[in-house]
């Protein structure tokens, strides 16, 4: 019962850790009429305590590192982290820059990576739909 109800509508928390806004806007494009990710039950929630899926963009700057960890810790288990874009996946456009941590996975565990600079909304949607499956498994394991 719980897993059925939970997996029907995972809620999203979007956090920008220093990206160029390109991926952020594609995340927004997801929520708007053309892509309309709400048909999978996803709603963008700004509150980490309500969120199930974290969409993280940006290469994680030194200043936002601790904030990202805080957000991750505040999100209740089971949770899923999706790194959107090249810089969130491995920090590549900002290689050797002095103020970046080179990717989300250096700071918190990441479940899915979305390629592209900036990543296309279709790619994010693909990741999110795959993520629902992974998240369902996590819920099942947590219930067991």
């Amino acid at each position: 019962m719980r897993e059925d109800a939970a997996t029907r509508s995972p809620w999203i928390l979007h956090f920008d850790t220093g990206s160029c806004n390109g991926c952020d806007l594609e995340v927004w494009a997801l929520l708007t009429p053309r892509y309309d990710v709400e048909r999978f039950g996803m709603v963008n929630k700004a509150n980490p305590k309500h969120a199930d899926i974290l969409l993280i963009t940006g290469p994680v700057t030194k200043k936002s590192e601790q904030r990202l960890i805080n957000l991750y810790n505040q999100t209740p288990d089971p949770k899923l982290v999706i790194a959107c874009g090249d810089c969130a996946s491995n920090g590549v456009p900002f290689l050797d820059c002095y103020n970046v941590c080179m990717g989300v996975d250096k700071v918190i565990p990441v479940d899915l990576y979305v390629p592209g600079c900036s990543c296309r909304p279709e790619a994010i949607m693909d990741a999110v739909v795959k993520g629902i499956g992974m998240w369902k498994k996590k819920v099942e394991e947590a219930d067991r």
Binding site: G18, S19, C20, G22, P59, T61, R67, C97, N99, V100
Partner: peptide, 26 residues
Amino acid sequence: YNHRGMEYAMAQDFKRTQFLCERVCG
């Protein structure tokens, strides 16, 4: 929170900068 050190990165190679400078703001 968003400071990535773009001005430093952009001074490294003037040809690549024409693509990197787009990454300042999407």
